[in-house]
């Protein structure tokens, strides 16, 4: 977990934590394969740690543009039938989801 670690090698626990955050179900082999891949990629990416960027402003977009706001006006809505046709499961005019209450706030 050391940010300045120059040789990043995520542990199996790190990968398991990231898989949980990613909402991906990985078995033991999957975790080990992911650890190997992430280590190789992060090993390559580590090169940017050598650059002096202390005085540099981060650049989230390729142009320093200012956001453009749209008028707050109602626009056309998608038809309910169109939206329901996209859903994997429906019940009447609703999208059906698994029961979520009573499982400890998941």
């Amino acid at each position: 977990m050391n940010e300045s670690d120059s040789n990043p090698m995520p542990s199996i626990d790190d990968v398991a934590r990231v898989a949980t955050l990613s909402r991906l179900a990985l078995d033991e082999d999957g975790l080990e394969a992911a650890r190997r891949d992430l280590s190789a990629i992060l090993g390559h990416v580590a090169a940017i740690q050598s650059l002096d960027v202390d005085e540099v402003e981060p650049m989230p977009r390729p142009q320093d543009v200012v956001n453009r706001l749209a008028e707050d006006e109602p626009g056309p809505l998608l038809d309910r039938e169109v939206l329901l046709r996209m859903a994997p499961r429906t019940e009447g005019p609703f999208i059906a989801v698994p029961k979520v209450l009573g499982e400890g706030g998941a």
Binding site: E3, P10, V15, V18, L24, Q49, V53, V56, M59
Partner: peptide, 25 residues
């Protein structure tokens, strides 16, 4: 997984913020 890793607590500044700075360079 890689994207979630570089955005996660403890790594965000070391990877993501740093990459955005290199982007400016």
């Amino acid at each position: 997984l890689l994207g979630t890793y570089v955005l996660s607590a403890g790594y965000y500044d070391a990877y993501y913020t740093r990459a955005l700075k290199v982007r400016r360079l």
